[in-house]
Nucleic acid binder design. Structure first.
Lengths: 147, 147
DNA sequence: CTAGTTGCAAATCCTTTGCGCCAGT
DNA sequence: ACTGGCGCAAAGGATTTGCAACTAG
């Protein structure tokens, strides 16, 4: 965790981004969780330690992180954006019931060659898979209710 | 095209959905294009032939189509939802510059077995790939400006 | 010092909703 | 006729923006 923050500080300096308390706290929060929080969630959590932070700073900061490759935006559901400090290649599992999002690696996919249409289409920057369905937790709850 | 509409009518009857002019026009519009319009685009286009239609009817109708499997919502960008009358398996190419979205088939991917983590995660309903990058059209324009 | 950042409040954009009237079956 | 669907207007929610005050480098 502290390594992540150290790396983050270095990346900020290199990019010419000022290391403000807000950015540090927001990054720390994002890097310490695997649940892909929405901007609002990040705001609420950071607010506990830094009561004066404002929601728009969180939005602005997350946008900055995204632009500098320090965090990624996840488009699993369309109601609100979700964020991820994990910027190395990985794929997502998204539960349509509880809206949870989980990372997983899929090297067979990541190393697969893209079809010709894709190469002809233009300059690809990223490829990403999303599986949707119902997570086992939600399935369990459902069975209980059905009983 | 007319086949699509005929099929659509059959599917509506079977599902107990009333075949209103609005639904027919919205479906016709969506099925006649490959550009994955947003609700607002559909509204503007349908409005030309049906000036009294309202935007919220378009939203409601697209939602209904989605729920009954008559159309699909595409989550490529997070600003607004995009829709697709193509509900058979296919993947997407999305240009971050012009926001265009293109379909393509990728059978090697579609037939690939999912990793264990996925099967353990829960009950998967769909899997979908999005490639992001810059389409050749945008690249061409960029080169022109750079000259 | 000074440019980049923040906090506040207001604005904007997309999408949804309540309700009375209308239309498809 | 009955019920679902429509149009209108207004609400709701997420995200962005203008601006003055502040702060990291």
């Amino acid at each position: 965790m502290n390594d992540k923050v150290k790396a983050f500080e270095g990346r900020c300096r290199k990019a010419g981004l000022k290391l403000t308390h807000q950015r540090l706290e927001i990054y720390r929060e994002l890097a310490s969780t695997y649940d892909h929080p929405a901007a609002d969630d990040v705001y609420k959590r950071v607010q506990k330690r830094m009561p004066t932070i404002s929601l728009d700073t969180v939005y602005r900061t997350l946008l900055t992180f995204e632009q500098f490759g320090l965090a990624a935006r996840v488009h699993a559901f369309d109601d609100r954006a979700r964020f991820d400090a994990n910027v190395s290649p990985h794929q997502h599992l998204a539960c349509t019931r509880c809206k949870s999002i989980q990372d997983f690696r899929w090297e067979a996919f990541e190393q697969m060659e893209s079809p010709v249409e894709v190469r002809k289409w233009g300059q690809v920057k990223s490829k990403h898979v999303v599986f949707k369905g119902i997570c086992s937790e939600c399935l369990r709850k459902e069975r209980k209710h059905a009983t």
